[in-house]
């Protein structure tokens, strides 16, 4: 059993299985939007519980991919543990540690997806200018003070912004301006201006999201870059 998890062939065949499953998934998604569209609108665990588990003939590829990712995770951990066992010398330290840093980065990314799939929240809705959205998680509320949009001479939207007040326990805790690529963060929660309308009255489509996996994804990304660039330099010289 240990040999199976330790084998590079397991890695290769599992990656091939993932490629095939994602291929099937990508061809099913456009034809069953009613099933797969909500994957992005809510927490993935909720989608699995409410929809995916009841439409298994359409979502089997997704569960297959999850199983393959679990196998790949075990395979990665076992291989990395094996690789760091034994005597270390200064001469090949970087060559031995770099792939493990890449692996750790990959595992952090998977952990990020797991945390983001099961915890945190995602809420979105239209909020008219001058209105307050109450009942947000963690006893928070959001007030949209003003919405602004700019267009160039041809009518092309040049930018837009929304000034919001965030309340926690009925006390204002943060004021900020939202815009494209400019969310407002507070204690791990992000507030995003997704789109807006000016007629019949100015209103913004806002997203309030908290993803406890995001920081792990960032850490994983940094580790992956560090490890792979180091490996690239070392292997390049060798090749």
């Amino acid at each position: 059993m240990k040999t199976f998890f330790l084998s590079l062939k397991t890695t290769v065949w599992t990656l091939l299985a993932l490629v095939c499953l994602f291929f099937i998934g990508s061809s099913m998604m456009p034809t069953h939007r009613e099933i797969f569209g909500p994957m992005n609108d809510r927490l993935l665990f909720h989608w699995i519980g409410d929809m995916a588990s009841e439409q298994v003939w359409l979502t089997w590829w997704f569960f297959g991919a999850l199983a393959a990712l679990v196998l790949l995770t075990i395979n990665t951990i076992v291989c990395s543990l094996q690789a760091i066992k034994g005597r270390w010398s200064r001469k090949d330290f970087l060559l031995r540690i770099a792939p493990q840093v890449v692996h750790m980065g990959f595992l952090f990314m998977l952990l990020a997806h797991l945390l983001g799939a099961g915890w945190g929240y995602k809420l979105s809705g239209m909020l008219a200018e001058g209105m307050m959205a109450t009942g947000l998680p963690e006893n928070r509320a959001l007030y949209l003070r003003e919405l602004r949009a700019e267009a160039d001479a041809s009518g092309f939207p040049r930018g837009w912004s929304a000034e919001v007040f965030l309340y926690e326990n009925n006390q204002p805790v943060k004021i900020g301006s939202l815009g494209p690529n400019r969310p407002l963060f507070y204690k791990g929660m992000g507030i995003y201006l997704k789109s807006f309308e000016l007629q019949p009255r100015p209103a913004a489509l806002l997203l309030v999201a908290k993803d406890p996996g995001a920081i792990w994804a960032l850490a994983g990304g940094i580790l992956f870059i560090l490890g792979s660039v180091t490996l690239l330099v070392l292997k390049w010289k060798k090749a």
Binding site: F23, S27, M29, Y192, K194, L207, A214
Partner: peptide, 16 residues
């Protein structure tokens, strides 16, 4: 993540 509040979306492009 800055634009849409998520670093991953389940769409065919991301899968590919």
């Amino acid at each position: 993540y800055y634009a849409w509040g998520t670093y991953w979306l389940w769409t065919p492009k991301e899968l590919w």
